[in-house]
Design a binder for these strands. Structure first.
Length: 419
RNA sequence: GGAGAGAUGGCAGAGUGGUCGAUUGCGGCGGUCUCGAAAACCGUUAUACCCGAAAGGGUAUCGGGGGUUCAAAUCCCCCUCUCUCCGCCA
């Protein structure tokens, strides 16, 4: 979330951001924050003053009692003050509730480099790498290749669970596992990430820390009768590892990675990408998370993209890097680069990684700070996250890009030792 | 699942109704000493909010929520989590 004081003194900048995100409808709510905030403070000042009176008078009572005096009248005086305090506290609570409701729903500020635009049509291609493969035959889509080669059992997955689930089998399961190990090895050995296996189920506070809750509850799977949610990405547990902590300056930057399955309800995407491996309720992903000093986050984002795209370079698959426009940038992110991989079978580029700089937005929600030595002050860290990469989509990119005329496919060189 | 114990500042660990935001130790930071370091000694060291130009002042916070009281880290209730023993179990 944004700093309440910042919003109050920069309303126009926040409104500008909301317009750029195509969410101008939030502007009146945002502006109401200042009103509530000021009103709240007035009550707070009154309340603090009364509490001060209460505290000093109460202390006097202790002294009076010790010297054997009568405390009745003073005691009644304090009771009257307390009644007044109770009323004011209730008022403050009401203001806080109103403020939080709005504040937790306001998206992050956008980096000035973010392109203008309402939706993905305005995303800007920054650069690309490699070449589209030239086939002398019509390229098959990955679902056909997966079926033909016995890598995935789509039908039985439906029997087991339903639509948008897959059952990897034989070499398919092995390839998926090989990719996970390959990605983790590259990031740990070459990019110096620390590896984790986090819980796949987290609580409400953790989901709030990274921004999934309260606003995007319908995108999550929630466990019945528990206040637990299935993680939609390892970004959630990894980023929250240090929630409510004050780190030493020497501890940062932190580079964390984890493989986890990711669970998404995909509410609102009925009919989209119903075939194959593009959009699933459960998919595998290797995630990269960085916790860094504010002055480093911009350059760390560029590095993060490089680390993620390294995987595709090693697999030798063509892709392009896209800077998301304002309307397409996620709630918690100030700036996002997508890596879009080329899929010859689908004749399209598809997102395979999303790398975001969340700056202090998540850090403020989750309470992740560090103590700066030169000033002795605590400051919010900046957090970044990126897929490195979505495993299932990498799987299908390999199938489509490495397919052969006979309907089979070959294996990228770097994966051979993992199979 | 049964029985018991516990949750206090970066960490360890005192504190059972008032002068306690909290003894002390360790760690951190600054200093004295030293060529330098260690040791020793001295000082300092929580977070958030509010008022203030600042100095400074106020308020809240001892796992979370509620209650008793003029007054709660301390008493009562509920919840969460941790530990020990027993049972079950990958």
């Amino acid at each position: 979330m944004l700093d309440l004081k910042f919003i109050s003194s920069n309303k126009e900048a926040v409104a500008e951001m909301l317009r750029k995100r195509n969410q101008a409808s939030l502007i009146p709510e945002m502006e109401s924050l200042t009103v509530h905030y000021n009103a709240r403070n007035e009550v707070q000042i009154k309340c603090d003053d009364l509490r001060n009176q209460r505290n000093t008078t109460s202390k006097k009572i202790g002294l009076i009692k010790m010297s054997g005096g009568d405390i009745n009248s003073v005691s009644n005086e304090v009771k009257a003050i307390n009644a007044e305090i109770a009323g004011l506290e209730q008022e403050i609570g009401q203001y806080d509730a109103k403020i939080d409701k709005v504040l937790y729903g306001i998206p992050n500020l956008l980096d000035e480099k973010v392109p203008e635009g309402k939706d993905e049509a305005s995303n800007r291609v920054v650069r690309s790498w490699g070449e589209k493969p030239a086939f002398s035959f019509p390229a098959l889509a990955h679902w056909d290749l997966a079926e033909k080669n016995g890598l995935i059992d789509f039908k039985r997955a439906v029997k087991l669970s339903g639509a948008r689930f897959v059952l990897y089998r034989d070499a398919g399961a092995k390839l998926e596992r090989a990719l996970i190990n390959f990605m983790l090895d590259v990031h740990c050995r070459e990019h110096h990430y620390k590896e984790f296996i986090p819980p796949f189920i987290v609580n409400e506070k953790t989901m709030t820390g990274t921004g999934q809750l309260p606003k995007f509850k319908e995108d999550l799977f929630k466990l019945e009768n528990y206040n637990y949610y299935l993680i939609p990405t390892a970004e959630v547990p990894l980023t929250n590892i240090h929630s409510d902590e004050i780190l030493n300056e020497d501890d940062v930057p932190l580079y964390y990675t984890a493989y986890t399955p990711c669970f998404r309800s995909e509410a609102g995407s009925w009919g989209k990408d119903t075939r194959g491996l593009i959009r699933l309720h459960q998919f595998n992903k290797v995630e990269l998370v960085k916790i860094v000093k504010p002055e480093d986050s911009a350059s760390e984002l560029e590095k993060l993209v490089n680390e993620a795209e390294k995987i595709l370079q090693l697999l030798n698959i063509h892709y392009r890097i896209v800077a998301l426009c304002g309307g397409d940038t996620g709630f918690s992110s100030s700036m996002t680069y997508d890596i879009e991989v080329w899929l010859p079978g689908m004749n399209a580029y598809k997102e395979i990684s999303s790398c975001s700089n969340c700056r202090d937005f998540q850090a403020r929600r989750a309470g992740i700070r560090f103590k700066r030595k030169s000033t002795g002050k605590t400051e919010l860290v900046h957090t970044l996250n990126g897929s490195g990469l979505a495993v299932g989509r990498t799987f299908l990119a390999i199938l489509e890009n490495y397919q052969t005329q006979d309907g089979g496919f070959s294996l990228p060189e770097v994966l051979k030792k993992y199979m």
